[in-house]
């Protein structure tokens, strides 16, 4: 079944609550087999953002009333300006950084903790670890990555942060509780006694589409599905992301040519057609990119 183009529901940006930055482009020290934008040490299709680029968007964000800032990649801490970028951002509002936790340095974390205290806004670290053991995590993220990420968690905890551990579900939904319980035990052994955990759905794009399968043509958001649906569950209803190519609709569709909506934040504030399979995942799970503290799930 193919979609008729005029049937694609459009979603307006209600308010730009979360501004994202693709701060390290598609460059990553890891090469995870489920990465939805195929990040790797060699993938430079998107490059690093400079402090100046981030500053320009931060300034523009003030009049738009942006509530929170998020940083992703690739691995954000490959960007040499990452610590100054976060220090600058915390002057504007709360910041969240999505990291694989494997290259964190204690001195960076100490600086960032001081910046957080100065600002009064929260600095959240979301550390991607895809299971409670090397046996589950390492085949996806690479050899020894479980151990290295857990060391990163220890550094964050030592610096006084309470990192949010995010894991992409590569098991069945029914196994969630078992996985979460095991993860809590393992984190306690590593000195993290009150862990915050978040399970993310798989996005069948990029490397993940190669690993398992991509979206079928029937996995699309239809006008019927949008009837009585709370649009605020969709990332594109309240977010945009800045890359070195422009401003895109959401972090997930970075690779899609139609995801670029403009050069500036204001230009990007136009409606977006939910034509992608990943839009269907976002529709099904809701609020997949936002922190729980900002959730308004019904």
């Amino acid at each position: 079944m193919s979609m008729v183009i005029e049937d694609v529901p459009k979603v307006a940006l209600k308010a730009l609550d979360e501004l994202w930055f693709q701060v390290s482009g598609t460059l990553c020290n890891l090469e995870c087999s489920h990465c939805f934008i195929s990040c790797s040490p060699k993938n430079d299709s998107f490059g690093h953002l400079s402090l100046e680029t981030v500053q320009a968007s931060l300034k523009e964000s003030v009049s738009l009333g942006v509530k929170e800032y998020y940083f992703t990649g690739g691995e954000p801490f490959l960007n040499k300006a990452m610590v100054p970028i976060l220090e600058e951002t915390l002057r504007y509002g709360p910041a969240t950084v999505l990291t694989n936790g494997t290259i964190l340095k204690q001195e960076w974390l100490e600086r960032l903790r001081a910046a957080e205290d100065r600002s009064g806004y929260t600095l959240e670290f979301r550390v991607s670890i895809d299971g409670p053991s090397p046996e589950v995590n390492d085949p996806i993220r690479g050899e020894k990555t479980f151990e290295r990420a857990m060391l990163g968690v220890e550094k964050l905890v030592n610096a006084g942060f309470l990192p949010i551990i995010t894991m992409t579900r590569t098991w069945s939904d029914e196994e969630d509780q078992k996985v979460l319980a095991k993860f809590k035990d393992v984190l306690a052994v590593h000195g993290y006694s009150r862990p915050r955990l978040k399970i993310l759905p798989r996005l069948k794009l990029g490397a993940e589409a190669e690993r398992s399968c991509g979206y079928t043509q029937t996995e699309r958001v239809t006008p019927e599905l949008m009837a009585d649906y709370d649009e605020s569950q969709l990332v594109c209803n309240h977010s945009r992301i800045v890359s070195d190519r422009g401003v895109h609709v959401c972090p997930i569709l970075l690779d899609a040519p139609d995801s670029i909506l403009g050069e500036t934040l204001v230009e990007s504030m136009q409606p977006f057609a939910l034509s992608h399979g990943a839009c269907f995942t976002c529709y099904l799970y809701g609020s997949i990119c936002t922190n729980a503290s900002s959730s308004t799930r019904e």
Partner: peptide
Amino acid sequence: PRKTNEFLWESTTSTHFLEKL
């Protein structure tokens, strides 16, 4: 004002967001 169940925490709410509200 815009949503009954929206959490406005001190540490996650930028000042310019409140200005806009």
